[in-house]
Amino acid sequence: MSENPFLYEAKGRVLVIRLPRELDHHNSRNLRYETDLLLAENYVSRIVFDFSRTVFMDSSGVGILLNRYKQMQRSGGSMAICGAKAPIRRLLAIGGVANLVPQYDTKEAAMAEGGKNDDEKQRD
């Protein structure tokens, strides 16, 4: 119960957040505070939400994703989702997240795409 449900991994400007098995209101209570701290202390231009171990989600998960999406939009950053299985993808579609946030099969692909975008931005 006391185990932190989220695992954070920062690589360059990309912050990967590995989500818990069950992404509900209870498990997501600390996410906002923790990510706000990480975003304040590090230069993050892309957040990747890793759903690879997540088997359950409700609208609390959608709320988190939409809030983080707006936050990244405001700061000129980007967001991606990786590893979401069919039941989760369905809920992302119902919640309107699927239209806003690109989805990738692997974490590596989701991270690499962010790097590409950064390079493109720098070239511009």
């Binding site: 997501s28 906002r32 409700d58 609208s59 609390s60 959608v62 709320g63 988190i64 939409l66 809030n67 707006k70 809920l91 119902i94 919640g95 309107g96």
Partner: peptide, 16 residues
């Protein structure tokens, strides 16, 4: 007011 809630709870219930 925290921005963390999606307001999609009933929409999810009705969709599912």
């Amino acid at each position: 007011c925290t921005g963390e809630r999606s307001g999609m709870g009933f929409a999810f219930m009705e969709a599912l």
